[in-house]
Simulated scan of single mutants.
Amino acid sequence: MASNPATLTPEDIGRIAQLARLELSAAEQSAMLAQLNGFFGIVEQMRAVDTSGVEPLYTPLSAIEDVTLRLREDAVTEPDQREANMANAPAADGGLFLVPKVIE
């Protein structure tokens, strides 16, 4: 990617489109470049804000009112069906699906 991580080049857009198997026209590539760089600009603005001492929120509502999470008990509710689920897998190893490599 580009030397500045917050700025993409037209070559970066071409590479992203290739990896995503997208056929983009020159106008679409130009629009995508502007949109993605605009997004990265917003991210950079947010990173510039000093958030030291700010507690993370698990919901935006907790900033204005006391919110109690209603969590259910963590209990197994379904039987183990790994063998049945793996029966149709074209390739498996140790209970895991094996898939062809798709990332260069």
Rank of each mutant, 00 (worst) to 15 (best):
A6E: 13
N85K: 11
L24N: 01
Q29D: 02
A31H: 04
E23N: 04
Q81H: 08
A91W: 00
A6W: 10
P5N: 06
S25F: 01
E73K: 15
E11V: 14
T68F: 03
S52M: 04
N88E: 13
L71Y: 06
L33Q: 01
D66P: 09
G38E: 03
A91G: 01
R72F: 02
E28F: 01
Y58M: 11
F97T: 12
S62V: 08
M1R: 12
Q81Y: 05
V102L: 05
P56K: 11
T9M: 05
T77Q: 14
A17E: 00
G94L: 02
S25A: 03
R47I: 08
S30K: 15
S62W: 04
A48N: 13
G41K: 05
V49R: 08
A87M: 09
M86G: 01
P90F: 00
M32V: 10
A2F: 04
M86Y: 02
N37I: 09
S30N: 14
V76L: 07
F39W: 09
E28S: 07
A63V: 07
L19H: 13
G95N: 01
R15Q: 12
I13L: 01
G14A: 05
A20R: 11
E73M: 07
E55L: 12
A87W: 00
I64F: 12
V54D: 03
E44M: 12
P56V: 15
D50M: 05
P90C: 05
R70G: 07
L33D: 02
I42A: 10
D93L: 11
A91V: 00
Q29V: 08
A6C: 10
V54T: 11
Q81G: 05
I42P: 03
L96Y: 10
A2W: 03
A27V: 13
V76W: 04
M32K: 11
L8Y: 05
K101N: 14
L19E: 09
R70T: 12
T59P: 07
L71I: 14
D80L: 08
G14I: 01
A6T: 09
Q45D: 15
G53Y: 04
R70V: 10
V54W: 02
L57H: 11
K101R: 14
